[in-house]
Amino acid sequence: MITIEFSVNDKTYVLEVDPRERLLDVLRNRLGLMGTKEGCGEGECGACTVILDGKTVNSCLILAGQVHNSVITTIEGVGNRQSPHPVQKAFVEVGAVQCGFCTPGMVLSAKNLLDKNPHPSDEEIGVALSGNLCRCTGYDKILRAVKLAAEEGKQ
């Protein structure tokens, strides 16, 4: 077991972990943050996307030992019903949500893109979301939602 210190959604945690534990399991089972989903467990689907030190990563491929001294944002750290993030508002407005299992990962990928590049081209949006699979045929609306969020940000 090793001790790691890291921040999740602006809260600092010090945990004893097995270094082989996946970040995904630490978030879900230790911290109870169930918004991070497991779809494939091998980095294909992006349902477990979180933002780690400013980069989107598949938390199923990150080991607990790797996040020592890191800053993590999960879906629970983005917006709420009182003040939703523009990306969340746009997803609801456009109808970019169907089953919702890919949605937390999609929102995080989109948020991270807009944080760095507030006026992305269609291609840049596509690339930013390319690690997130949706199976309910929602890509078109998802891309439109990200575009809408970017436009709202301009005003």
Binding site: T74, G79, P84, V97, G100
Partner: peptide, 8 residues
Amino acid sequence: DSWGKVFG
């Protein structure tokens, strides 16, 4: 149901 889904 969208709201609950976008907030995880």
